[in-house]
């Protein structure tokens, strides 16, 4: 391709956006609407996942040892647990620490009457999991270790969190499928308008002897630009809305923010910006290719 043809193609691509203002606006609005819905949905899901993840991180199992077990065996058991892939981290709580914790939390000054540690056999490992759905597998393993007397866990919390995770996954897939279907419907309509606007121009180019590449290039440039603009607009809106909603929730429901932690806007946008821009460019690129291809057989 000659250099002046390259620049001509580029220039025509940009000019096309302004030549067919209505079509360009309709295309930008369609892409922006789809990606706005996608962005909002992503932000909500990201926060749900963040909240569930936080809750999961707080779920732990307690491993108690046989009476009179030697310290060296406790160390060995600790090493065995640490090697398990389900384990995110673990803490050793000695019998003294267990009693102090219990006394401070439940007995207060009444605990001073005890001269001996009533929780003498309560030294334990507090084990945190990578994924709560792995809890029962880990517990089975822990119970099989020689020297382990008892394993305490909260089955209900683990099951609930696993259920919530599955629900988020199903809802995500469902909503993404609906968004995709709506996007395809809207974009195919926009492309149909594009075809009627472009038909004559493409025909003239083909009659004169333009190659498919020459015909397609300005439309592809135009499509990519429309995709980029269509993706940037909702990103700006979502950025503004996200901050406003986060500030509102934090100010209005301070008790909620102490229970739940939200994902920062930067963290959401680290994923949302490349994905949205990629989708915008992809939609614009494919849309223009499809629009033009139907007329290349002239």
């Amino acid at each position: 391709m000659r250099i002046n043809t390259f620049f001509y193609t580029l220039k025509q691509g940009f000019r096309n956006i302004f030549r067919n203002k209505l079509f360009s606006l309709a295309s930008i609005a369609t892409i922006a609407a789809c990606l706005f819905l996608f962005g909002i949905f992503y932000a909500i899901v990201a926060n749900f996942q963040h909240i569930v993840k936080n809750a999961e991180e707080g779920v732990s199992v307690w491993v108690f040892f046989d009476e009179g077990i030697e310290d060296i065996r406790i160390q060995q058991i600790g090493d065995m647990i640490a090697k398990r892939p389900e384990v995110a981290k673990m803490d050793f709580i000695s019998a003294e620490e267990a009693w102090e914790g219990f006394r401070d939390e439940y007995l207060g000054e009444y605990g001073d009457g005890f001269t001996e540690n009533p929780l003498e056999n309560s030294a334990n490992y507090q084990v945190y999991l990578n994924d709560v759905s792995m809890q029962s597998a880990l517990v089975t393993y822990l119970e099989s270790i020689d020297g382990v007397r008892m394993v305490n866990r909260s089955e209900l919390v683990a099951t609930t969190l696993t259920g919530v995770n599955a629900l988020i996954a199903y809802v995500s897939v469902g909503i993404i499928a609906i968004l995709l279907a709506v996007s395809i419907f809207l974009i195919s309509n926009t492309v149909a308008i594009g075809i009627s606007v472009r038909k004559e121009e493409i025909n003239i180019m083909k009659y004169i002897g333009a190659t498919d590449f020459f015909v397609r290039s300005p439309f592809v440039v135009e499509g990519i630009m429309i995709g980029l603009i269509g993706a940037s607009l909702p990103l700006g809106f979502i950025y503004a809305i996200y901050n406003v909603v986060l500030t509102y929730v934090t100010d209005r429901f301070p008790q909620l923010s102490s229970l739940l932690s939200f994902v920062g806007v930067e963290e959401v946008f680290n994923v949302l910006v490349p994905v949205s821009l990629g989708l915008g460019v992809g939609i614009g690129f494919l849309g223009s290719i499809v629009t033009v291809r139907r007329h290349l057989r002239v």
Partner: peptide
């Protein structure tokens, strides 16, 4: 199909409705 553009460059075509690019 890919040879058609080269072939058409040997032809000039004029239509009843002119088919000019209006913009």
């Amino acid at each position: 199909h890919r040879k058609i553009p080269k072939f058409r460059r040997n032809l000039g075509i004029v239509f009843q409705d002119f088919r000019l690019l209006k913009d």
